[in-house]
Amino acid sequence: MSAGVVLLFLAAALRISVPYALASIGSCFSERGGVVCIALEGILLTSALGYTLGAYATGNAYAGLLAALAAGIATAWLHAEVTVRFRADQITSGLGINLLAAGLTRFGLVRVFHSSSNSPRVEGFADLPLGPLAHLPVLGSLIASPLVLLLLVLLPLSHALLFRTAFGLRLRATGERPEAGATLGLSVTRIRFAGVLLCGAFASLGGAWLASEQHSFTDGMTGGRGYIALAAMIVGKWDPLGAAAACLLFGAAEALQIVLQGSAFPSELLQALPYAVTMLVLAGFIGRAVAPKAVGVPYDPEQA
């Protein structure tokens, strides 16, 4: 590979991992609080449509971002309502919400844009004026994007929020031993809601990124990215920093697949790499991924 191809590969890898990282960091909050977030895919999808509708109506990317947040957080709220308030099975709820999101967004496409496949072109984000920084190779054009800059700021902050603040401690406590938290007077319901809604907010940024980069919404455009983000969260051991690193790895695998397309190398098998890595990590072949103890278990104070 020449230097040019390597640079192209790096740029593609970074760009691909942006939405994964946003969603993946978000899922750390939900899961650390004890709520499995398979709904990630659905949140990405609704927020991508939200962005498109907002940007279409106003012609402004930031209005699109707000609409994405509203749609994504509403979707996460539904997941929280079903799993935390009604204490229903979290995995089934996530799958149901993903199905709901697929149906609703297609319904929205048909109703608003009279097409079952795609929306018209909408505005994306304009690059930020970064001066000399914008001329950095590979990174320059990437960090000039407002959502990438936001990701770079939010990444260390989210790690700190989870591991260095009272809120983070409480969130992790409700994910490990909710009854212990409740004994100390914490509201497990409220804390778990906060975790799921935070997850929704982060994932919405990912949805906004997807729609703004593509300048449109297309049916099923998330294409399983929510599940990859979830897998990255596991490989990253329920830590935002680890999750982001895993997203970079997965993004690199995807970029390599693009570079190798058309060559003799079976690029479809590279497609399977993130999934295979996740399975190896889960089985304990590469490090050990230990989930929060109470993740997936509804908290019922009447039975505690």
Partner: peptide
Amino acid sequence: RELIEVLEALVIL
């Protein structure tokens, strides 16, 4: 037709 998909999801939830 998308409405039917929404219905299926609502049944689950």
